[in-house]
């Protein structure tokens, strides 16, 4: 589904990603760990094609197509969707309307989706305007629910979300990925849909209690340096910290 080869990325003239090789096959969910400032968000923004993230070397392929230099909206239309860590406020644009935009001309029942995310009362508020941390997460997920991407990029979906709402976030992600869920988006049954791919950034790993991950990876100083079971990585990081995690993987 997604393939990244020898990716080097500069932000503001500084090299942040130094040589990233990564593959997310169809139907798999990968978890991305890494200390603050290691370049996780940079990687997502680069996959989506945001300006300011300059690819100086390497290639990104999605569904067999080289998207390294494609405009953002074409990547979105090809089936990549992102939940942002810090999305901008758009004054005067109602959340309801951005959800409709996300559906890209497919019919969408905004009310029902919002209801599932317990977000109905926000539909008539301006996009992200004065949203709390947890509200931003729900707003982002709601948009993704309307978008139904084949590859979902989630930047810390559980950070700032209270304990009760994490279950909701987990359920929604499963629904997005067509993994066993109680939701039947747009009236389709998940059984007939193929499982979708995801790349999820997490620090706490709380989200792992709700979604099944196929693989975990650690980004450290602009390089992916470990690739194994996500829970094992989490355990290592918890017990020994990133330093040790890196030492182990370089041995």
């Amino acid at each position: 589904m997604l393939q990244i080869e020898e990716l080097r990325v500069e932000v503001g003239g500084k090299e942040i990603l130094k040589n990233v090789n990564m593959e997310v096959p169809e139907g798999e969910t990968h978890i991305l760990f890494g200390p603050n400032g290691s370049g996780k968000t940079t990687l997502m923004m680069t996959i989506m094609g945001f300006s300011g993230y300059e690819v100086t070397h390497g290639k990104i392929t999605f569904k067999g197509e080289d998207i390294t230099h494609q405009p953002i909206h074409e990547r979105a239309r090809l089936g990549i969707g992102v939940s942002f860590q810090r999305p901008p406020t758009i004054n005067g644009l109602k959340t309801r309307n951005i959800v409709e935009i996300c559906a890209m001309d497919q019919p969408v029942d905004v009310e029902t989706l919002a209801d599932q995310l317990d977000f109905s009362e926000f539909l008539d508020r301006d996009v992200n305007h004065n949203f709390s941390g947890g509200e931003i997460k729900r707003s982002e997920l709601l948009q993704l629910m309307a978008q139904r991407p084949d590859l979902t990029l989630l930047d810390e979906p559980e950070s700032g979300v209270d304990l009760e709402s994490i279950l909701l976030v987990g359920d929604t992600i499963n629904s997005l990925l067509n993994k066993g869920t109680k939701y039947f988006p747009r009236g389709r049954t998940h059984k007939t849909d193929r499982v979708k791919s995801a790349l999820v950034i997490t620090h706490t790993g709380h989200i792992l209690d709700y979604i099944t991950a196929d693989k975990g990876q650690v980004l450290y100083d602009g390089v992916l340096c470990c690739s194994r079971n996500a829970r094992e990585i989490l355990k290592w990081i918890r017990e020994y910290g990133y330093e040790e995690c890196i030492r182990c993987s370089t041995n």
Binding site: P71, A76, P88, I101
Partner: peptide
């Protein structure tokens, strides 16, 4: 703000 434009582009709108 360019970030607003790109945010909406990430939702499928052209520039």
């Amino acid at each position: 703000d360019q970030r607003e434009i790109e945010y909406l582009m990430a939702r499928g709108l052209d520039e």
